[in-house]
Amino acid sequence: MEAIRIESLTKKYKDTVAVDNLNLSIKRGELFSLLGVNGAGKTTTIKMLSCLTKPTSGDAFLNGKSISKDTTAVKSIIAVSPQETAVAPGLTVYENLELICGVHGFGKDKKDTKIAELLKLLGLETIIKKKAGKLSGGYKRRLSIAMALIGEPEILFLDEPTLGLDVLARSDLWDIIRSLKGKVTIVLTTHYMEEAEALSDRIAIMKDGKLLICDTADKIKEIAGTDNFEQAFVRIVRGCDK
């Protein structure tokens, strides 16, 4: 079953084409990574898919719902964990989760259940009374993902989820992301090759708004003729210039 179908999606800003005629299909429960150098169009793609910006042309369908015509329905099945941590700094960890429960209109019982479940899943139980603004980068990211998951999304967008984290915090977050695999469709953008390779079912590599390749990490390496994924990425991105 298809979770996301992208049809000729294009976004132009004045003279710049941020995303150029993108066509993709992502399966339900798949963990799909968007890779690319800066300005490749990854974040713009996520912004269009999450109804934060309108496409110039083309459309995408999330569980059959159009991002152009049915934004309310799309918003009800998605969640975004943006590049910046996007937490309320003056609120505690618990209050941040409570805020999002309220925004989604949860009753008390559901709120308590969801918060307890996510505190456990994201390993936040010991810091529930700590203000979000005082958390370390790793814990802020965990809280950000917990806030995204609280609305029980069918599709989760993780924009650079491990950006700026140390090796241990990144490894912890990878475990959390792995634990979500199959339960929710995840679209992840990252600059880290090893992250994409370790976590993803399939990877799309973008450059200058265009899709260069979309396949499994192993297949991409095979096509690029190397055992190293980073080398494969470089060859594919450089190759398109030649």
């Binding site: 996007a86 309320a88 925004v103």
Partner: peptide
């Protein structure tokens, strides 16, 4: 809120 993308997160909610 705009700078930290909290508004962006909330724009994707109902």
């Amino acid at each position: 809120d705009r700078g930290s993308s909290l508004t962006q997160r909330l724009y994707t909610t109902p």
